[in-house]
Amino acid sequence: MIQIQTERIPRIIAMTNQVGGSGKSTSAVNVGAQLAAFGLRTLIVDADDQADASVALGYMFPDQLEGQKTIYHCLTEKGTKLDEAIVPALAGPLGAEGTKVIENLFLVLGSGEMENAEQHLTSAMNREMWLKKLLDPIKGEYDVILIDCPGSLGLVVIGALVASNEVVACIKPGFKELRGLTRIEQKIELVREEFPGADAKLVGVLLVDVPTHRSAGAVWDDGKKMAEESYGDLCLPPVRRSPRIPESYAHQKALLYFDRAGEATEDYLKVVKALGFQRQK
């Protein structure tokens, strides 16, 4: 009897905020590593011009890899397909002794050239569809696709929202940061109204870099209360502040491979479970 292999229908999640330094890349990398450990074939799309997700997953200088395409090539070079920019995620620097390939986790290599993406997209046809068109041919190969967005609400992010069906807003606890969520919600609603078939919705508010000592606790308590009052069940388990997070980035390893029993590692596991993912049998 011939078995017909059905195509995956992935969850496509945009990790976003309108400002940089809000924990988007850290969260994309560490949520992705947990998902891969769950047995889910996971792709991280590094669309941020800082390319932090690429660095964290082993590729310190993605633009300098000879013969290797990046997401910027896919955006700007006609005929370049997204799978040409996909590389295995690594635990450790590329080429270093002891570096390992992370099973089930893949990366669309980022590029510092993405700082010019807005300028390129301004004059492009169907500019808001840029990422959807790149993802459509390959998305059936993955269970989950995480898009690490830049810290803005420009054309790159609009393209990510059009391509996604879920959005997780990553923010630091504080009044200013929580106010910024309103703009993200407005942008999601605009995308749903303007683009037929676009169905992105906010599924989670992730507070990151949460203080764990009393001197900063008041800020956190106020931010947490405000988030819960405004977003209720959308509030995901928070990620506690930990020196292991920047250390893991410096060692180019996801937390799961750098500090397996650490608090922040545990927090990201809780986030993955709160998003409804289950370990595969």
Rank of each mutant, 00 (worst) to 15 (best):
S22G: 09
K24E: 06
L40W: 13
N30F: 04
L40V: 08
G21E: 11
R41Q: 14
Q34F: 05
L40H: 13
S27F: 09
A28L: 00
T16Y: 03
S25D: 12
N17T: 12
V31H: 00
N30Q: 09
I44Y: 11
D46N: 05
V19A: 15
L40A: 09
G20E: 02
T42K: 11
T16S: 02
A37R: 08
F38W: 11
K24Q: 10
L40D: 11
G23I: 13
N17L: 12
S22N: 10
A28P: 05
M15Y: 03
S22T: 15
T42S: 05
S25M: 07
Q34I: 01
S22C: 14
A36R: 00
A14V: 11
M15K: 05
A37I: 04
Q34A: 06
L35S: 01
T26W: 07
A33R: 08
L43F: 09
F38R: 13
T16L: 12
G39I: 08
K24G: 02
S27P: 06
L40P: 07
N17K: 06
M15L: 15
G23E: 10
L35I: 02
V29H: 01
T16R: 00
A37L: 14
N17M: 12
A37S: 14
G21P: 09
L43D: 02
N17W: 09
V19D: 15
K24V: 12
T26A: 15
A36T: 02
L43V: 03
A14P: 10
S27N: 07
A14Q: 08
D46F: 06
V45H: 13
L43Q: 04
I44H: 05
V19I: 13
G20M: 12
T16P: 01
D46G: 03
M15D: 02
L35Y: 00
V45S: 12
V45W: 07
S27A: 10
G32Y: 02
G23W: 08
L40Q: 13
G23C: 12
L35R: 01
G23M: 10
T26V: 15
T42C: 01
M15S: 07
L40C: 08
F38I: 03
V29W: 00
T26G: 11
A33D: 02
L43R: 06
G39Y: 12
M15Q: 05
N30G: 03
L43I: 06
N17D: 14
S25Y: 03
G32A: 11
S22D: 00
V29K: 00
S27W: 05
V19M: 15
G23P: 08
S22K: 12
V31S: 01
G23D: 12
A36W: 02
Q34Y: 09
S25L: 03
V19E: 15
S25C: 05
F38A: 03
A36V: 05
V45Q: 13
G20K: 06
N30T: 09
V31P: 00
G23Q: 07
G21D: 11
